[in-house]
């Protein structure tokens, strides 16, 4: 039997050989593009399954948007196919059907009826006050629209809409988690940015987050659109907003047409916002040209058509320059 020292030396020799071979192979292997990216623990641990978790956290954020009133896999999810927090933000087209108030259906038995006392069973939205402001009537406290800054009464106290909407901050941790798990999921960036700037007044954070999204998804039209909205609505920097809207349209035209189902909703958003911007800047001819294009992509052309008529009438009344 060889002495212990011989065994230890043999083992050390083998470990050194294995390590040297691994280093040699690493150098010889063709370099992947991803080698230049920073080390991502989630990517290493979860691989591609992280996309599934990203979706889970995105849905979780929407459940928070409803203060926990959310269908499980055992319930009818027709009215929650599109996340309400994303459709309310105007970043995705809503494809929900059915009644969002009554996905639970009628109680099947006495246990089912009784169990509804112990979990949230009323439909509310965080941006409208959430659980705090629900009026206690099953499923009829939400869905009404409030104008920015309007005062309304919920639990007997007056709240400004801005104050009430602050609760929407609670969806942010899950959206951030979702974006770190799947950086290619664009609606996470756009939804987060919308709520950050519109209800929390954090346009700087929203811009930073969108720029992070743009780094991961270069020239993405949806992110450019949301970025343009920040410059137009928050910074009042119409020149940069115009450039970003135009960059968004150009990017859309390069990437979307070859797709089986191009995102026409996004093009409609980009064009109508740009048209409105031109109108606000008194570039009426350019605005008319854009509204004509909006008509072609709008789900209901009657709206832009009516707007065009008003715009032309307004132009006719203006003294000629």
């Amino acid at each position: 039997m060889p002495p212990v020292r011989t065994n230890v030396l043999a083992l050390a020799g083998l470990v050194t050989a294995a390590f040297s071979l691994a280093c040699a192979l690493q150098v010889a292997m063709p370099r992947d593009e991803r080698d230049n990216e920073p080390f991502d623990l989630m990517q290493t641990l979860l691989g591609d399954s992280r996309r599934m978790f990203a979706n889970h956290f995105f849905v979780k954020a929407d459940a928070y948007f409803h203060s926990g009133f959310y269908p499980t896999i055992f319930d009818n999810r027709e009215s929650f196919e599109t996340a309400h927090m994303a459709s309310d933000a105007g970043v995705v087209e809503e494809k929900n059907k059915g009644d969002e108030h009554s996905f639970l259906g009628k109680p099947l038995d006495v246990f089912d009826r009784f169990s509804r006392n112990f979990f949230p069973a009323v439909h509310t939205h965080l941006d409208e006050g959430g659980a705090k402001d629900h009026d206690g009537l099953d499923g009829h406290d939400s869905g009404h629209e409030h104008k920015e800054g309007e005062h309304f009464v919920g639990d007997g106290h007056d709240h400004s809409h801005d104050e009430v909407g602050q609760g929407v901050r609670e969806i942010l941790p899950w959206l951030k988690m979702s974006s770190s798990l799947d950086p290619s999921r664009v609606e996470t960036y756009t939804t987060t940015a919308y709520w950050l700037r519109s209800r929390l007044g954090k346009s700087r954070e929203a811009e930073e987050f969108l720029r992070e999204g743009l780094r991961r998804n270069p020239r993405d039209a949806a992110i450019l659109f949301e970025l343009a909205r920040i410059f137009r609505e928050d910074r009042k920097d119409l020149e940069r907003a115009r450039n970003l809207f135009e960059a968004g349209i150009s990017s859309w035209q390069k990437t979307e047409p070859p797709k089986k189902e191009p995102n026409v909703f996004l093009l409609h958003q980009l064009m109508s916002h740009l048209a409105q911007l031109e109108e606000d800047s008194d570039n009426d001819l350019r605005a008319i040209e854009l509204w004509e294009k909006v008509k072609l992509v709008a789900p209901d052309p009657a709206g832009p058509d009516l707007h065009l008529r008003d715009l032309r009438e307004k132009m006719a009344k203006k003294p000629a320059k």
Binding site: Y64, S67, G68, D109, F111, F114, S115, N117, F118, F119, P120, G130, A131, K132
Partner: peptide
């Protein structure tokens, strides 16, 4: 379903997390 203990009745975490009012 009817024989198993209904442990879900005691789980009011969602209500606490989202600041729902106390149970009746």
């Amino acid at each position: 379903y009817f024989l198993l203990p209904q442990l879900g009745w005691f789980d009011v975490r969602e209500r606490i997390t989202h600041n729902w009012p106390p149970l009746d």
